[in-house]
Structures are given as structure tokens and as C-alpha cells.
Design a protein around this nucleic acid. Structure first.
Length: 741
DNA sequence: CGTAAATGTTTTTTT
DNA sequence: AACATTTACG
């Protein structure tokens, strides 16, 4: 039986390790941890100790001999979460934890595909494209099929393709059945996109999932992986999409040992294909499923929990959970009105300093959340001015900076010369006199001869129309890369390879010659990347086993890097991030800024009918707070270049008065001067008063009907006599009136 | 071919 | 307001 061999916890003489594992759990947690074979759904509310349940369950499976470490596949949302989970299991059981697969869906898929991609006609050194590259590829496909990129935005087309893939529709299936002009263009672009991706041996994020599903559907390979992973555990299950669901279903189809942990109230990734039905209908999809609800919260005060519940409980079709705590009521939630975003930022900065100075709160226990990244700037200005140390999570990402992408492109080219995206990026940065025209000539020659762009570049003199200077420049470029490629073959430390690459391609020299502050920053970023590589080299020296070369593994790690992975909790810094990035984290004090209609909830979400997802986002943000929670809104906000008067978020009106302390503009909450009642601020809680179920009503266009239900937010459901249809209407706005008897 | 200016576009959230 | 892409010019 495995032993706790490395931990500070003293091993009591005679204590049974399994008993010790269970001793620190509450009854519900224990029920989940000790569930035997078969599907298990853990509905884990915010702060209910779900990570603890997952880690202890894994440890329990291993310690009781039910599973061997190599049979465990545990899926987390970020790489950081994966590292932490592995670490905790290791704390409980020691080194055997090393051999488990604990990683994100995408990382696990990449690893499976590195082994089995040949089955699908890919070679195992395929490249992973990030969103920007994928969009560029879509754009090129649109140009190739002669679609006007003004009318058909690459972004929108890429999104449509992504949506299709997440639903496991391939290009052929998408194209069937005609559809709107947009859909036809998407279909055509989709087919070309898939062909080109395959030719380039490249995959986008969605492909990693889709192709893995294909592998698992292969009789032999599928059976191999099913046998390999006898135990599946998935965190944040509410954020899985259809492809991920199918992947799990296939893997679990024989043994059924699938544990999923999640909270339907925290499903906030619908926009990228996550399907909340996965969690809501788990018991239907896996009829043998056992369900455990974790409703005891170990994080927040009752006030925070009740306030958050008041908001999320307005959603329809959720699984009712009511979180409780023994922590006591604590401070009221503060709701504050400020004049504009600058005043808001000043208030936050001052309040942070007050918390630090007067209440002894540590800065790294304070976080500010906002809906969109653009909101961070004003706040950063003030924090810099007031010398409040802070870190921003997200925004312009390290790995999306031009110089970093260039460096990565060079490394990709060394790993996979056929990578035309990397080629296109590297070939003319720094400037080598191989501009758009020359590149187009290379590409079109590759296209007509069926060779890869690299093969074409190796014989530049054969490319029709390529100028003399360009031929020479391409020749020099190829020579440089070939030399580096040779060097890479001997598997030198990555940091050295990267440094050699940057200097031999003259990348560093060119930047240094610029002598601008900007170039200096870029050099620093590249220096940091070398540091990352060095760290990678050091870690890898310990780890060992892998089917990839170090270079390939590094590229993969970089490609699947997520923002939260870069989060550090040392350093005494306040943390700034979007509400989406906040999931899974917790802080003593939380500030949510920009609580205004149109911003939060975001106008686009409202347009697309995603109010409930916004409400869940609000729930997520609020429940990150242990004891202090402040929500602010500005009367005026300058966003995207124009200043406009704003209306307080409807979510603020949904907070029960007894839990809230309102400051500034108390009387005006919801009623700006002369603007009349604000639609967002319905009296809370309780249904809208104007209509009652069973009342007869008349609608200006649908005619006579009867109210069949009254929902929160002033929505009434009316069945109309004329056509028997049932419609949801906004009582305040719909041309609807009571029919007097 | 490269640079600079002009023009247009985009601003939800991300593995 | 900031950025990317396109266009015009040297």
C-alpha cells in the first residue's frame, strides 16, 4: 500500500492511511470520495471543497488498490490547476502520482494524438495553431474562394467553423443542406481550411478534441485507450462542450468509471461551445450515475453566499443548491456609485490602501474583477500613480506578442519544416527582402507543384517570377534554418537552441540596432522566453519520459499555455483580471467594477439571449470573496472612445437590501435625473407585480391570450388564443395590457 | 520592396 | 481610443 513518504504530517503509529485520507472530509465529501465503480456526479457549489474531493478521491482509488496510477486520467481546466492537483495527490501518497495523467483536455488530446495521429493521416509532429493563426488561415481561405472579407469577416467565419467542430460536425457535414449565403461561404471556406490544415500538418484547438474523438472511434486505438484509462475524473464539468462530452463517453463506454465535478451555476463558457446540458443531463446520459451535492461552503461569509444566491437563483432550469457556512454573517456587501471610471479607479485604489493599512489585509489577498480586459487600463493608471503593486492576468498575452510569436515560429520551423504558417512568419522577420510578393510566389509554386513551402524554398531558383535578389535572400534564409535544424537534431538544451536561433537569424541584432524603448522591451521579452526555456530544460531533466523531443514538447506546452498558468500568489500584489479568469480562485477582498447595463451584463450577451450566463458570471465573481465584497458602477463611462451615461446593472437591483450597504447616489439608484425608472432595477426579490398567472391579456400583434406563468425580471409567459403559441414577454415593454372582464 | 500615412475596424469572455 | 490592415508613395 502506498505510503505518505514525503509529508510534514506526522504519521501516527498504527494509523490506517485510508482512514486518515477520509478523516478530514465532511460526510458528503466522504460519500463522493469513496464512491466505487460507475459514474459519479458531484454537484459542488462554490467553495465547497471540490478540489479536495477530487484529489482525495484519486488518492483513495490509488490507496485502496482500485486503480493504478497509469490508469488515472484527471482533467482540469488549466495547466496550473493540473500541477496543483498532482502536487496534492503527491502530498497524500508520494511519488506514484507522477505517472498519472493530470492535465487539461487539450493537453491530454495532444498527447494522445502525438501517438495516434498517423491513423488520421497526420504525422505526429503536427503543429498547434493558436487562435490568431487559425484566423489568418481562415482569411487566406476566404480570399482563395473569392469571398469578400468585408462581408464575411474571418473572425465570424472562424467562429462558425469552431462552433461546428465543437458540435463534431466536419466540413462535409456542414456543407450539406444549403443554408444562407453566409453558411454557404462558411461551408466552402471550411472545406478548404480543413484541406490546408491537413496539408500543413496543423491543428487548431478544436481539432485537438475532434481528432482525438476520431482516434477513439477507431476500433483498435479506441480500445487501447479505453483499457488504458480505467478511471476518468473531470473538473469543471459544466464547461465541457459536445466534443469533450463525446470524448469522455467513448473513453468511459466500457468501464463507466467517470467522475465529473462541477457546478451548473458556474457555467460561463457557453460562448465557446460549452454546453451546460452536459452537467444538467448527466444523470440521463449515464443512468447508473450516483449524485452527491456539496452545499457546505468553507470560503465565504453567509452574507456573500446569500447575496450571490439571490442573483443566480433567478435563473431558470438550474439545479437548486443553497450554500451555507458556519462562518457567520460578516460584513454587508458594499454597492457604490461613482461619477465615472476614473473616480471608480480612485475609490478602489484608496480602499485597497485602507484595507492594507487599517485592516491588515495582504495585497495578494485582494482582487479586482471586470467584464472586459479594456477596463483594466484606467485602473492600472491609478494604481501606478498611487504605487500600489499589482499584476494583471490576461489582456495582451505574453505568447501573443509579435517577438515571442516570431521566436516560436523559428522553433516550430526547426521542429517541422513543413509548417507553412511558421515559415510565413519567420521568413521575413527580421526583414530580409522577402516581402509579400515573393512569399506569394513561393506559396503559389508550392501549390502548383504540390510540394511544401519549405521544399520550394530549398530551390528558390526554380520558382517562376521570383526576383534575383529574392532568390538569394531565400537561399540565405534556408541555409540559416538548415544549419540550426542540424544543430537541433543533437537535442541541445532548449535555451541554448533558442539563443542560437535568435542570434544566427540576426533577430537580436536587428532589434538592438533599432535603439528604441520599444525594441528594448521586446529584447526583454525574448530574454524572458529564454528564461522560460531554461526552466523547461531544468524541469525536463528530472521528469524524463516522453514520446516527444524536448523541442516538440516545449512548443506544445507553449501552445497550450493559459493565462491563469502565469498566476503567482507571492509578491504582495493586488490581482486584476476578468471575471472569466476568476473561476476557481479565492480572495479575502473582492472588487467587481463596471456593474452597468450593457457592460455587465454585456450588451452582446443580452443580444444573444445569454443573460443567464452573465448572471452566472456575476455569481462566480461574488463567490470568490471570503469576507469583503464591493460592487461599483459609474454614472458615466468612457468605453471604446465614447463617453456615455450608464444605468446601474440589473444585478445590483437583484441584491436583497438587508445584505447590502449602498453608498453614493443612494436615492438615484436606478433613476438618473429625468430618465424615468430604470428597466434593470426591479424590486428584489420576488416576481414582477403587474401580472398574475391566469389573467387575460391582449397583445397588440398576437391578440388575446392568457398569462400562464410569471417569471423574475418582469417576464410573463402568455399563451395566445389565435395560434396557441406560448411566448415570453417583457411585461414592461411588450405592447401588452390587461383585458378587463 | 519597404515605409509612412490613411483608413477602417474592432472592443466578451479563452483552451 | 487603440489597433490592424490597406493604400500611397519613395
Amino acid at each position: 500500500m502506498p505510503q505518505t513518504d514525503s509529508q510534514s504530517t506526522p504519521i501516527e503509529v498504527g494509523a490506517d492511511p485510508v482512514e486518515r485520507l477520509l478523516a478530514e472530509l465532511n460526510p458528503e465529501q466522504r460519500e463522493a470520495v469513496t464512491h466505487g465503480e460507475g459514474p459519479l456526479l458531484v454537484l459542488a457549489g462554490a467553495g465547497s471543497g471540490k478540489t479536495r474531493v477530487l484529489t482525495h478521491r484519486i488518492a483513495w482509488l490509488l490507496a485502496t488498490g482500485r486503480a493504478g496510477p497509469e490508469q488515472v486520467l484527471a482533467i482540469t481546466f488549466t495547466n496550473k490547476a493540473a500541477g496543483e492537483m498532482r502536487g496534492r495527490v503527491e502530498e497524500l501518497l508520494g511519488g506514484v502520482a507522477r505517472r498519472m495523467w493530470v492535465m487539461t483536455f487539450h493537453a491530454a488530446c495532444a498527447r494522445i494524438l502525438r501517438r495516434d495521429a498517423q491513423l488520421l493521416g497526420y504525422s505526429s509532429n503536427f503543429t498547434i495553431l493558436d487562435e490568431a493563426d487559425a484566423r489568418r488561415m481562415v482569411k487566406r481561405c476566404l480570399e482563395a474562394i473569392g469571398a469578400d472579407p468585408k462581408r464575411f469577416h474571418p473572425r465570424a467565419v472562424r467562429a462558425a467553423i469552431s462552433r461546428a467542430k465543437n458540435a463534431l460536425l466536419d466540413a462535409a457535414a456542414y456543407g450539406d443542406g444549403g443554408g444562407s449565403p453566409f453558411e454557404q461561404v462558411v461551408g466552402e471556406a471550411f472545406r478548404l481550411y480543413e484541406r490546408r490544415m491537413r496539408d500543413a500538418n496543423a491543428m487548431d484547438f478544436d481539432d485537438l478534441l475532434v481528432r482525438t474523438v476520431e482516434v477513439l472511434r477507431d476500433e483498435q486505438a479506441g480500445a487501447r485507450w479505453r483499457r488504458r484509462f480505467g478511471w476518468l475524473l473531470v473538473d469543471e464539468y459544466q464547461d465541457t462542450n459536445h466534443a469533450q462530452y463525446e470524448l469522455l463517453r467513448l473513453l468511459a463506454s466500457e468501464h463507466g468509471n467517470l467522475t465529473v465535478v462541477g457546478d451548473d451555476d458556474q457555467s460561463v463558457y457557453g460562448f465557446r461551445g460549452a454546453d451546460i446540458r452536459n452537467i444538467l443531463e448527466f444523470e440521463r446520459d449515464f443512468p447508473a450515475a450516483h449524485t452527491v451535492k456539496l452545499e457546505r461552503n468553507y470560503r465565504s461569509t453567509q452574507t456573500v453566499l446569500s447575496a450571490a444566491h439571490a442573483i443566480v437563483s433567478r435563473n431558470q432550469g438550474r439545479k437548486e443548491k443553497r450554500m451555507w457556512t458556519e462562518a457567520g454573517a460578516g460584513e454587508p456587501v458594499r454597492v457604490i456609485e461613482l461619477a465615472d471610471e476614473h473616480a471608480e479607479a480612485r475609490q478602489i485604489a484608496a480602499e485597497i490602501e485602507r484595507l492594507v493599512a487599517d485592516e491588515g489585509v495582504s495585497r495578494d489577498q485582494i482582487a479586482v474583477f471586470y467584464r472586459v480586459n479594456a477596463q483594466s487600463r484606467v485602473l492600472e493608471d491609478i494604481l501606478v500613480r498611487d504605487e500600489v503593486p499589482y499584476q494583471v492576468i490576461g489582456g495582451t498575452k505574453f505568447y501573443e506578442r509579435a517577438e515571442i510569436k516570431d521566436a516560436i515560429a523559428y522553433l516550430s520551423l526547426l521542429a517541422n519544416p513543413a509548417d507553412e504558417i511558421a515559415f510565413g512568419r519567420a521568413v521575413n522577420s527580421p526583414k530580409r527582402g522577402i516581402g509579400a510578393t515573393s512569399q506569394a510566389r513561393l506559396a503559389s509554386h508550392a501549390n502548383t507543384t504540390g510540394a511544401t513551402i519549405w521544399e520550394v524554398a530549398e530551390r528558390p531558383e526554380k520558382v517562376p517570377g521570383l526576383g534575383k535578389a529574392a532568390v538569394k535572400a531565400v537561399g540565405r534564409f534556408v541555409e540559416t534554418i538548415a544549419g540550426l535544424h542540424e544543430r537541433a537534431a543533437s537535442a541541445p538544451p532548449l535555451a541554448d537552441l533558442l539563443e542560437a536561433t535568435l542570434s544566427e537569424t540576426s533577430y537580436l541584432d536587428t532589434l538592438e540596432a533599432e535603439r528604441t524603448i520599444e525594441a528594448q522591451g521586446r529584447l526583454e521579452n525574448l530574454h524572458e522566453l529564454v528564461g522560460v526555456a531554461r526552466e523547461f530544460d531544468a524541469e525536463r531533466a528530472i521528469e524524463g519520459e516522453s514520446e516527444l523531443t524536448p523541442l516538440e514538447e516545449f512548443l506544445q506546452q507553449v501552445a497550450l499555455y493559459s493565462e491563469q498558468d502565469g498566476l503567482h500568489d507571492e509578491g504582495g500584489m493586488v490581482t486584476l483580471m476578468t471575471l472569466h479568469n476568476a473561476k476557481g480562485l479565492e480572495y479575502d477582498a473582492v472588487f467587481v467594477i463596471g456593474c452597468e447595463e450593457g457592460l455587465f451584463p454585456h450588451a452582446r450577451s443580452l443580444e444573444e439571449g445569454n443573460l443567464e450566463e452573465e448572471r452566472r458570471l456575476c455569481y462566480v465573481g461574488m463567490t470568490r470573496a471570503r469576507r469583503l465584497l464591493q460592487l461599483t458602477y459609474a454614472r458615466r463611462r468612457m468605453l471604446y472612445g465614447v463617453g456615455e451615461a450608464s444605468i446601474p446593472s440589473r444585478f445590483l437591483g437583484e441584491l436583497p437590501d438587508e445584505l447590502v450597504e449602498r453608498e453614493g447616489g443612494l436615492a438615484t439608484l436606478g433613476w438618473g435625473p429625468g430618465t424615468g425608472p430604470s428597466p434593470g432595477i426591479a424590486p428584489a426579490p420576488g416576481p414582477h407585480p403587474s401580472y398574475a398567472t391566469g389573467e387575460d391579456v391582449v397583445h397588440a400583434s398576437f391578440g388575446e391570450g392568457v398569462v400562464t406563468a410569471v417569471e423574475p425580471d418582469g417576464i410573463v409567459v402568455v399563451r395566445f388564443a389565435a395560434d396557441g403559441s406560448e411566448r415570453k414577454l417583457m411585461a414592461d415593454f411588450a405592447p401588452l395590457r390587461r383585458r378587463s372582464a
